[in-house]
Structures are given as structure tokens and as C-alpha cells.
Simulated assay, not measured.
Amino acid sequence: MTEGSTPHISPARITVRGVQPGKPPFRIVEVDGQFVGRAKSMTDVLLIAAEAGIQIHDLDDLDVVRWVGGGKFTWTPH
């Protein structure tokens, strides 16, 4: 395998996991691989990051936030 065919894995400090069922549904947020909270919206992700001392200027920047199981607009289970 060559470097050119290696998939890009984001070094993002923040990972937002897939939607979990609940009332309301939520997504698990990790910072540096550690669980730090549950987000019910994009605003929650920003607040959790700020509490961890991380400023997010662009939720689409894969070097800052890694979205797993759906993007920033996915907040309901499929």
C-alpha cells in the first residue's frame, strides 16, 4: 500500500458519534478519545468544545471535528 492510497483519518480532537435513541435523541461527544458529554444539537457540540477549551470556527473542518454516523445536520435516528 502506498501513501497515496491511505484513507484520510482526521486528527480531530473532537469526535461526534452517531445518533443514539432517546427522548430527545443525542450524540456522544468525545475530546481526545474521552467521553465528555451528550449533544442534542450543533450548539451543544460548540458548548462542550468550549468547556474543554477548544474553539470551533468551522464545524465542517475535518481537522477540528470528526462526525461519525452522519454529519452536523444528523440529529435523529434513521
Rank of each mutant, 00 (worst) to 15 (best):
M1A: 12
M1R: 05
M1S: 13
T2Y: 07
T2C: 08
T2G: 14
T2A: 12
E3I: 05
E3G: 11
G4M: 05
G4D: 07
S5A: 12
T6E: 06
T6I: 06
T6Q: 07
P7V: 11
P11A: 15
A12L: 01
R13L: 13
R13S: 14
T15F: 13
V16T: 01
R17S: 14
R17Q: 15
G18F: 12
G18P: 04
V19F: 04
Q20L: 09
Q20E: 09
G22T: 02
K23E: 02
K23W: 11
K23S: 10
P25Y: 06
F26Y: 14
F26M: 06
R27W: 02
R27A: 10
R27I: 06
R27L: 03
I28H: 09
V29I: 08
V29R: 00
E30W: 08
D32I: 10
D32L: 09
D32S: 12
G33P: 00
G33D: 01
Q34K: 05
F35Y: 06
V36H: 02
R38E: 03
R38T: 12
R38N: 13
R38Q: 12
A39V: 04
A39K: 00
A39L: 03
K40Y: 15
K40A: 15
M42K: 08
T43D: 11
T43Q: 09
D44A: 04
D44Q: 01
L46A: 03
L47W: 08
I48Q: 00
I48F: 02
I48K: 00
I48G: 00
A49R: 01
A49F: 08
A50K: 12
A50T: 13
A50E: 12
E51K: 03
A52H: 09
A52P: 03
A52Y: 08
G53A: 15
G53V: 15
I54H: 13
Q55M: 15
Q55T: 14
H57I: 14
H57N: 14
H57F: 15
L59I: 15
L59G: 11
D60R: 06
D60C: 10
V65W: 05
V65D: 01
V65K: 04
V65C: 10
R66S: 14
W67L: 08
V68C: 07
G69F: 06
G69M: 04
G71T: 02
G71K: 03
K72Q: 12
K72Y: 14
F73L: 15
T74Y: 02
T76I: 06
T76F: 07
P77N: 09
P77R: 07
H78K: 06
H78P: 08
H78R: 07
